[in-house]
Design a protein around this nucleic acid. Sequence first.
DNA 1: TCAATCCGGAACAGACTGTTCCCATGGAGA
DNA 2: TCTCCATGGGAACAGTCTGTTCCGGATTGA
Lengths: 109, 109
Amino acid sequence: MEIFAKRLRERAVQLGISNAEAARRVGLDERRYAHYVSGRRQPDLMTLKNISEGLGVTPNWLLDFATATDQDRRMTALIDRFVNSAKAMTHEQLELAVIQAEAVVVSNR
Amino acid sequence: MEIFAKRLRERAVQLGISNAEAARRVGLDERRYAHYVSGRRQPDLMTLKNISEGLGVTPNWLLDFATATDQDRRMTALIDRFVNSAKAMTHEQLELAVIQAEAVVVSNR
DNA sequence: TCAATCCGGAACAGACTGTTCCCATGGAGA
DNA sequence: TCTCCATGGGAACAGTCTGTTCCGGATTGA
């Protein structure tokens, strides 16, 4: 996961801070954080989450995860339509829609 | 990271497959994957990424990372649930779900 | 010159992981 | 009913990896 270390360095530059300062923001020991920056060691999942929050980024970005939705354009187009509709719904309406959707998925067995 | 293990089990249910089948899709040994499912052990970052791809979800979702900082978090959480469900749907099923959602919005007027 | 900050390397004890057995359960088919 | 196979849990072990601690060099500002 060299990309992870690269993203940590990249983010520090974006924020205009040193890696040591980034470590403090995340709440990690400088040496420990330095290991992540150098790419020689990897954090556990909880630490990954904390780093994401501390630096204001997402795990997806830190891991360079390309959203699989980019592959199927028809699906993404439909999802976009749903998201737009969801913004015009009440919370109860959206909740019902989600429950229905999840029920459809379960029934696919 | 109990939530991570929970999400693995949750996703297997969504896809209607066993954990062993999920392990095969990801390309991991069943025993090893079972450790992740039980929450007793955690994968490294590269494996996390592979699991995300194999199961058609995102690291953000597997880690329960709240991306909502702008709008209503309840709404975005529901939308995320829908998006994940949509990935397990056929195109026809998703299309119907969207049509229904848009119909709900129209009825609000 | 001195102090402070940042960053890299080395090393060690401890924790964690990946893997391998063993076994219990439950469903499918003969 | 019996057998086979898939699933999944538990235990254990060797090896790897991590977190932490020292040390030193480089840079900056007072």
